[in-house]
Write a protein that binds this DNA or RNA. Structure first.
Lengths: 401, 401
DNA sequence: GGTAATAGTTCAGCCATCCAACAAATGGCC
DNA sequence: GGCCATTTGTTGGATGGCTGAACTATTACC
């Protein structure tokens, strides 16, 4: 009759083994967050735990394949040399999946932060059939899964990134306008199972939010807004190094913030949405390019000093700055990261965006808002998704040792 | 050399006494959140702890004055009658302080949620001197503190609500335009000490945010936006029954979200800020009333069907709805609570705000946004401030037993 | 080669929880 | 009225995880 939780929830009764779980997490975090490999003694000093405790905990993490011991290297000081500890490579991995308008992507990431395998299948999924596309992505994932499991790695789970509104509570995709999908559960069609035949836990999230998570791999402040233009304009809010999703999982919908009520009509039914100024297709069209041209074409035009391109990007940047100022006023962060198509356009956009935010955001006089370029490469959402899976492993190492 | 934390921080080493702290908190929450008084056995069932453990924990909470035992009442079923447990009244109290443009306020709240004492001193503090006003508030607080301590209550701490930007990290007031204050530390001038002569811990926060916390006393969903018009327009974001303050403590600055870049110039330097449409003074002025008239005057005009008043409120409501739609798009909540001056105007505002949000917010088709009237009474910020103090007591009952 | 220093391990002690048995207090039934 | 079933709350031994101190292992320095 007693509820025996496999993983200790936030507000659950604390028992002896809860201490274990907490301290395992604490030790794992210490090892993973350290810039340099730590010894057991270092971990003890960093966490405040006794050396004896740290030893048993580290031993478990090593046995469970979460942490690896490096060969002891003689330090330049007296005493027994320390055994450096590192995140284990290629033992436990996370899977990041993505369906976007022009590609399917899969990334396998290990605890050391290394991409073990990445596959991308270009295509055109505008107004596509989910029951065709998702099994195709599933098959692609199957291949890399087989590789990973064949090499002895354990797959902790998967995250599927989609360009649309995903209900974080149910995992259902409400609508993905550019894919032409609505009201579906995208997980079953993937057909993903582990080697043992058990269904692989797959969670679904918005593409921009997972791309925001990918930024956490680099040197970013603990809280920031990530804004990217792909087909639509999406955003992710990171607070204290964690994704903040909002009640239902679809916060950060900056693309449909009204910039000017007298502006052009948007597909959403309103007038003057940001997307009508700073969306990728609008920027391309206003620059005299085809709406489905690659961003590189626009970059070339800007490099060449094409007047209409420069004007379009500047107009978009001003609108983006205005919407971001509202965002910063409402959510209060000090840093904005520009990703997706904005990464390539950063040299032409960044300054104007920063200036506009600075003059428009209310609190900017007291502490300026930093605007910067995204660091994560292409297909950031798959990397971020895999990263989120591994974050959960680290949040509960006890389940893995 | 070992760091001996008085209160166990989030990421600190977990020891035996950490279990105690956690379970004490768990038991206290169970007692405080229950709609009906629980028995020890009920608490055990609710928390999953053993009855023996719950007994010792409850005994401590009772001894510490956080929980009170009611006389056992014979239930209508067989068995030994249970001892009902309740939040203790008038033992530990929180102090809420407020400086606003037209009054100083102090509220003493106990753990049972009852207002033990409330004092309000009307005045005009437009462009006032903090070194005069704050000591005056301090003296007012001194009186109610003496009363409370004289009656044997322990004061857990205080929260000071101010209508301005407060840096949550430093506790400094950056600027309060309507008071004419800027760059001050408002705590020392209060001169508040406990009976033992120790300085009373006072934290500072924005007025709207503490008013939002006051709503938590009523029947509200776990996450909501609270928006109130006083002199400016302020907002508080509540996520999962906790105030979300943003990185620096000044999120929710909806008053200076740009509604129409072609709109009237705002004191902040931009054009078409929400405050220029839905601010209290603007609503009064557009209705042909004096800018410093009481809201009741506007209500009377609306009751009388005054055309300019109706038009002004409707225009304000539309602008508010548009800004709230952006807010909802960016933060993602299902409920918006209208407080401050909007409470009185709700009958004329509410419908238009709800309609506008509904047609403008992107995700509204998938789950409608509820707009409702605030439940907390006047001087909600002082009540909410005191409530926040007591929330911290409950978050760490071990420090009080 | 001896000493000081540091890393990691072993082991008795402590402490909060648990389980099971018990005492306390009631309703129902004959 | 007396007995039993039922529920509450308490008592005491067992369990498990952390600690601190003593111990071993391995190095630098003189």
């Amino acid at each position: 009759m007693t509820a025996e939780p496999t993983t200790t929830a936030r507000g659950a009764a604390a028992r002896q083994h809860t201490l274990r779980e907490r301290n395992l997490r604490l030790v794992a975090r210490a090892v993973f967050d350290a810039p340099e490999p730590l010894s057991r003694a270092d971990v003890a000093a960093a966490t405040g735990l006794a050396r004896a405790t740290v030893s048993t905990l580290v031993d478990r993490l090593v046995a469970g394949g979460l942490v690896a011991e490096l060969p002891p290297v003689a330090a330049q000081r007296a005493g027994r040399p320390a055994v450096p500890l590192q995140p284990a490579a290629r033992t436990v991995v996370g899977l990041g999946l993505e369906v976007n308008v022009d590609y399917l992507g899969v990334t396998v990431l290990d605890l050391a932060g290394q991409v073990v395998e990445q596959r991308v299948e270009p295509g055109s999924f505008h107004d596509s059939d989910p029951d065709v596309v998702l099994p195709r992505l599933g098959a692609l994932a199957r291949k890399v899964l087989d590789d990973a499991e064949g090499a002895g790695m354990r797959v902790a789970g998967a995250r599927l990134a989609l360009p649309g509104l995903v209900d974080a509570r149910t995992g259902l995709l409400q609508v993905a306008p550019n894919l032409g999908w609505s009201s579906i559960d995208p997980v079953p069609p993937l057909g993903l199972r582990t080697r043992d035949g058990e269904p692989l836990p797959v969670e679904v999230a918005n593409e921009a939010k997972l791309a925001a998570a990918a930024e956490l791999a680099g040197d970013v402040p603990p809280s920031f807004l990530y804004v990217s233009a792909d087909v639509g304009i999406g955003a992710g809010i990171v607070v204290d190094r964690r994704l903040f999703l909002g009640e239902r999982g679809w916060n950060g919908e900056i693309g449909h913030v009204v910039v000017d009520p007298a502006g052009p009509r948007c597909s959403c039914g309103n007038h003057g949405c940001l997307e009508q100024y700073a969306g990728k297709e609008v920027l391309l069209r206003e620059s005299g390019l085809a709406a489905d041209a690659p961003v590189e074409a626009l970059v070339s035009a800007l490099r060449a000093g094409d007047a209409s391109a420069v004007a379009a990007v500047e107009r978009g940047a001003r609108a983006l700055g205005q919407a971001l100022a509202a965002f910063v006023n409402l959510v209060d962060v000090e840093t904005v990261v520009l990703g997706g198509a904005y990464t390539a356009l950063y040299d032409w956009l960044g300054g104007v965006v920063a200036d506009t935010v600075q003059t428009t955001a209310l609190a900017a006089p007291f502490s300026p808002v930093a605007v910067r370029r995204a660091a994560a490469g292409p297909h950031a959402a798959t990397v971020g998704g895999a990263r989120e899976v591994l974050r959960e492993v680290l949040a509960n190492p006890a389940a893995w040792v």
